[in-house]
């Protein structure tokens, strides 16, 4: 599973995320290539918006 697969699964469509896998930041353009190892600590921080 990649970061992108996981975001899709979670329904995280907001484009403005800070994603890290086991503490390592993942660049936006690398979501599709970055694997998520079993048991990894994945964080997807949604940067606040609101009109």
């Amino acid at each position: 599973m990649t970061v992108q697969n996981l975001l899709d699964e979670l329904g995280y469509t907001y484009p403005h995320l800070v994603v890290s896998v086991d503490g390592n930041l993942v660049r936006h353009d690398a979501y599709s290539e970055t694997p998520v190892p079993d048991g990894a600590d994945v964080r997807a921080i949604h940067l606040m918006a609101g009109g």
Binding site: H16, V18, S20, L25, H28, L47, M48, A49
Partner: peptide, 17 residues
């Protein structure tokens, strides 16, 4: 906060930009 260089992710507190 509606357009932000992703380098912000490396800051101490990204939510504050």
């Amino acid at each position: 906060n509606d357009v932000v260089d992703p380098k912000n992710a490396e800051s101490d507190d990204p939510t504050k930009i």
